[in-house]
């Protein structure tokens, strides 16, 4: 079943009960949470995802629980849990939805070693993937949301690029894009039909909102794609769009540095990264407007 066909009350009931089981790209997850903002956020952001109706194996069992203080309405906190482990300290309950998203990223990044997992956005057009690694503040997520929302690119992932260790192909995850601060307004303006979650204020990353993956991206989550470009974006206010070639050896090191599990894979990890870099054209991209970016990426897509 598709989540949007299940009434909101039922979604909340499953989250409070045994868990809501969702297919998330190649993974399955059972999610539990009694928190209303989580139920509302999941119903909106994962509306196009498939639910699993039969009991069975799930890759990840996660929960975000509210731990009341003595007085429930004062300093209520929430805690993310993955089978007894948690990467975060308890945080204000208002942060529950982004915490679930970050917790899910953490589960995947620290366990799913069937993939080489790179901290990078991955978008696809014409069967080729553009990998966008980025330091915080480089504008990776904004660029990704703009190109997917209005640039004709398909979202594979905003945070975690998954490369199949056996085939070297990119695996779509098609989960929400996490936007920070002014990027929220930029995307609201640039992609008028984007579905955004409520904003969460004062998280460790500041003000954040999540953008739902496009229906097309979610529907095509089974379609893998080949590496095409490695592009290191940099947002510079007032700068003209500049695309310049990047040394492949340098791109290799940056890609490996941005990978969560490159070192875990040893020789095999080296070979997979080397193959990806060999296939790709590598660039640095400086930009200040999404209009420019859409144009540059469109002409890039024509070259392959």
């Amino acid at each position: 079943m598709i989540l949007s066909s299940i009434p909101g009350g039922e979604v909340a009931r499953r989250l409070r009960g045994d868990g809501l089981s969702l297919r998330l790209g190649p993974f399955t997850a059972a999610i539990r949470s009694p928190i209303a903002s989580v139920a509302e956020g999941i119903a909106a952001l994962y509306a196009d995802n498939e639910t699993l109706e039969e009991p069975g194996f799930r890759d990840f069992h996660l929960s975000v629980d509210a731990s009341g203080g003595l007085r429930r309405w004062v300093r209520r906190q929430c805690r993310f849990d993955f089978d007894g482990a948690s990467p975060f300290k308890p945080l204000p309950v208002a942060h529950a939805l982004p915490i679930l998203e970050w917790g899910l990223n953490w589960c995947i990044a620290s366990n799913a070693h069937r993939y080489l997992i790179i901290h990078a956005a991955a978008i696809e057009r014409g069967g080729r993937v553009a990998i966008l690694p980025g330091e915080p503040g480089a504008g990776k997520s904004t660029l990704c949301a703009g190109l997917v929302g209005s640039g004709g690119w398909r979202l594979l992932s905003d945070e975690l690029s998954l490369i199949d260790m056996a085939t070297g192909r990119f695996i779509p995850l098609a989960r929400p894009i996490s936007l920070k601060k002014e990027s929220i307004e930029i995307i609201r303006g640039f992609v008028p039909d984007a579905v955004l979650s409520r904003e969460t204020h004062d998280t460790t990353k500041g003000r954040v909102a999540l953008v739902k993956a496009t229906a097309d991206s979610v529907r095509r989550a089974g379609e893998t794609a080949a590496a095409g470009w490695i592009i290191f974006p940099r947002f510079v206010p007032g700068a003209p769009p500049i695309l310049e070639r990047q040394s492949k050896a340098a791109a290799f090191i940056e890609l490996a540095t941005n990978a969560f599990n490159y070192s875990i894979h040893g020789k095999r990890g080296f070979t997979v990264v080397a193959d990806v870099v060999e296939t790709c054209e590598c660039y640095r991209f400086t930009y200040c407007s999404l209009d420019d970016a859409v144009q540059v990426f469109a002409s890039l897509a024509l070259t392959r």
Binding site: I253, A256, F270, T271, A274
Partner: peptide
């Protein structure tokens, strides 16, 4: 060691130490 040439540069992986070097 494993290595791969990219243009005239080289990336070398040392499986004993787990280090990767760009030459």
């Amino acid at each position: 060691l494993l290595w791969r040439s990219f243009d005239d540069e080289l990336v070398v992986y040392d499986d004993r130490s787990g280090d990767t070097h760009r030459l």
